[in-house]
Design a binder for these strands. Structure first.
Lengths: 210, 210
DNA sequence: ATTTACATCACCCAATATGGGTGATATTTA
DNA sequence: TAAATATCACCCATATTGGGTGATGTAAAT
């Protein structure tokens, strides 16, 4: 059974190159190519693609917004981001928006074919650096100014626990929790839990919730 | 330059098979193999491996605990989990503990060689299903009983925001925020923000923080 | 040997936040 | 038409939070 593919990229040369390389395999059928998300989304139902290859830097609706809209309209369609950008924010926003893979453009277009195959086989194709970024997003980063205990307290705060609950869980008095939090705020130079949580998450000083 | 590898697996046959398949390539040198984490950790400094292949089900210290200890002692050592388990909790706990990859054991041991190469090249080798699980962990899951607005409010709560801040951010009154939260608690059958956050995260009804 | 950081706890105080109850209105959707 | 949704208001009581000051013991660093 042939798999239907749609390509969205504002560079005509890349669109045509991708079409050629994919159609060299008879298991792939490039249904349509578009230079922007808007026109692609208009034809989504008619095209009914199994896979969409999507550039992230696009005029008009961005690839990320496009991913959200496509994912909403066709939840089972596999969206693969094909881009030159390795910006971590773009990577994670794409994945959150519903992308199934993230391939950094490279001269060897055969990796695209492999990526499509991997995605169709139920995987999540990613470039080396991207998969590393994704896995590292699970890990706490070093460099926190907080002590071990303070990190535990901040972790608990980020889980929405009250001082009393934290005290109970850590087998210490509520007053001690307060002291730790005062010290956390001083070290992070914040005065609210919201800011403390934001900074801790941004720097990955606490464990994320998976 | 030869890369030094240590294998930890309680099954002798697997240890020896892995050793054989890896040493068939002269770029790999299997320094030592162990049947448990304890003995491996004792010799960590002497072995100074570049890569550790680690089974997750082990007698004594579990692979996850082992990963934490190894990662602490040798932060630059690449730890690859080699296991039969596809349990999502194990996968994410391993990654949080510092593993760089997660390979599901399969009869074809050549995939292990490729995984080691990929890890050494700066990637994060994962089996198809695992990479899919990891990517899906970024996405909100369907099936939330909460309305769009309620989800937004719960998301804000999980970010540590106060009712006033949520009201400000969503351009609604604090009273409306309260109403939404009452409805959230009713629907989720909880009475505290902590429980609401926990349930929402567990079911991935809110966006995780990356 | 002294300082620094850490972990622990206590008491005081005031403002804010939170949770529950009840009720109301307008819009949308089933 | 009924149910769900989004909005806002007022009442009430308790819990939570944040800040200040100060103290003790231990461990690590200089």
């Amino acid at each position: 059974m042939q798999k239907k593919i749609v390509i969205i990229d504002d560079n005509k040369l890349i669109r045509e190159s991708l079409r050629m390389i994919l159609e060299s395999e008879k298991r792939f059928q490039v249904i349509n190519t578009y230079s922007d998300c808007e026109s692609a989304i208009t034809n989504l139902e008619q095209d009914a693609p199994d896979v969409i290859l999507l550039d992230i830097q696009l005029p008009g609706i961005s690839g990320i917004e496009g991913t959200k809209l496509i994912h909403k309209k066709l939840p089972d369609c596999i969206i693969l981001i094909i881009t030159v950008s390795e910006d971590s924010d773009q990577v994670f926003k794409s994945l959150c928006a519903g992308a199934s893979g993230y391939i950094v453009k490279c001269p060897n277009l055969n990796v695209i074919k492999e990526a499509v195959d991997e995605a169709l086989a139920g995987g999540a194709p990613m470039s080396l650096q991207i998969s590393k970024m994704v896995v590292e997003s699970f890990q706490k980063h070093a460099g926190s100014p907080l002590s071990e205990r303070e990190s535990q307290v901040l972790q608990s705060i980020s889980e929405g626990k009250s001082y009393s609950k934290i005290a109970e869980d850590l087998f210490i008095s509520k007053e001690t929790v307060k002291t730790h939090i005062k010290n956390i705020y001083r070290k992070l130079e914040v005065v609210t839990k919201e800011d403390a949580i934001r900074i801790a998450h941004k720097n990955k000083w606490v464990q994320r919730n998976y």
